[in-house]
Amino acid sequence: MHELMNTSREALHLLVSLDPALWEIIGVSFRVSLTAILVALPPSLLIALLLARVAFPGRWFAISLVNTFMAVPTVVVGLVLFMLLSRSGPLGELRLLFTQRAMILGQILLAMPVLTAMLHSTLQSIDQRAWETARQLGAGWWQSLWVLIREARFGVIAAVLAAFGRIIAEVGSAVMIGGNIEHFTRTITTAIALETLKGEFAQGLALGLVLLLLALVLNVLLGVMRGRGHQTVSV
């Protein structure tokens, strides 16, 4: 108990004293995960729109495929990417293994199924009349698409927050293809997972608090979004 108190105090101290090593790790995590989300969003939106709005043969199969990918463990994504990016793998020439770009790639692969599945269901719940109304009122194809996305904005934001929460908190692929290299690919989760091997719990705990805080902020934001969805807006 005494030990636990000491570790917690030390962790808080690291946080409030803006320990540079700690904040560097947090910076890497956010840079990688935000980039991954930004890159993953447009293609996910397009796939989701396709699945939600266009009837094509094999659509149900494509939807099940997306849902299946959502259940793929992160270490499997890590393993597959490792084999692809390894020196002996087909993409070895790119020399991406153990770089932030490789981690971003891994997180894009992890984020896309979550984004696509959530966007699909939110876009599907948008009334068919929305598209017809926009088209009738003279909106072009892209303008109508934008209206659909705007109508689904709370769902879109929810999808982005959920996907961001998933990839910033994942450790499996981050360790395997990032390598936990200090100053380069050491993220919040890989640091937590591997700092404990040193018997250094304070930094791990501090980083854990950051993740916890992040989860809280994400959920409060989601709540605010939903709240706004039910109130008067003056736009």
Binding site: F98, G179, I181, T190
Partner: peptide
């Protein structure tokens, strides 16, 4: 210089991959 914070096996793999 790259500090990996991982076990010997992982570090040997990384050294091999990164030559």
């Amino acid at each position: 210089f790259r500090a990996a914070g991982q076990g010997m096996g992982e570090v040997l793999n990384m050294a091999s991959e990164l030559q």
